[in-house]
């Protein structure tokens, strides 16, 4: 199951943040269900060949964010309670990250803020047609 995570050490994004995002994404998409166990720090560090402290830090932050629970001796689990509310937040996080990448890409293409907003509006209209309220 650890194989569901991958990290890119050469990226400028810190590895623990890459890992946090992936766990949140897996929870949001349901690949990791409520109550499901995560690999141990050691197992995941070895699986990804990264520093165990990096994995431990990611798990600590995930626990702090209410995504997982860690109990000493038993391991780390996706939280059972409020999985809807929590995964709502996880969905937001994933969306924020994907949209952030898109906006950054647009910016590096030399797009002005106003033009980017226009294009963003076009896309919103396309995928959320007028009158269709969530």
């Amino acid at each position: 199951m650890a194989a569901i995570f991958t990290v890119d050490p050469r990226s400028g994004v810190p590895l623990y943040l890459q890992l946090i995002e992936q766990v949140k994404r897996a929870v949001a998409l349901g690949t990791l269900g409520p109550g499901e166990q995560l690999p141990t720090v050691k197992a995941l560090a070895l699986d990804l060949t990264i520093n165990p402290n990096t994995v431990a830090r990611a798990y600590r932050d995930l626990e702090h964010d209410g995504v997982i629970d860690t109990s000493p001796g038993r391991g780390s689990f996706v939280r059972l309670d409020g999985s809807v509310g929590k995964s709502r937040r996880a969905v937001d996080d994933v969306a924020r990250s994907v949209l952030g990448d898109a906006v950054r890409e647009a910016k590096t293409l030399g797009l002005a803020r106003e033009r980017a907003a226009e294009i963003f509006g076009e896309q919103l209209d396309r995928w959320f047609p007028a009158g269709e309220k969530e």
């Binding site: 720090v41 050691k42 070895l46 060949t49 520093n51 165990p52």
Partner: peptide, 14 residues
């Protein structure tokens, strides 16, 4: 080389 890296990571995990 990868084995060495694994040994280092395992030792650190311990």
């Amino acid at each position: 080389q990868r084995v060495v890296l694994d040994l280092i990571i395992e030792a650190a995990a311990g």
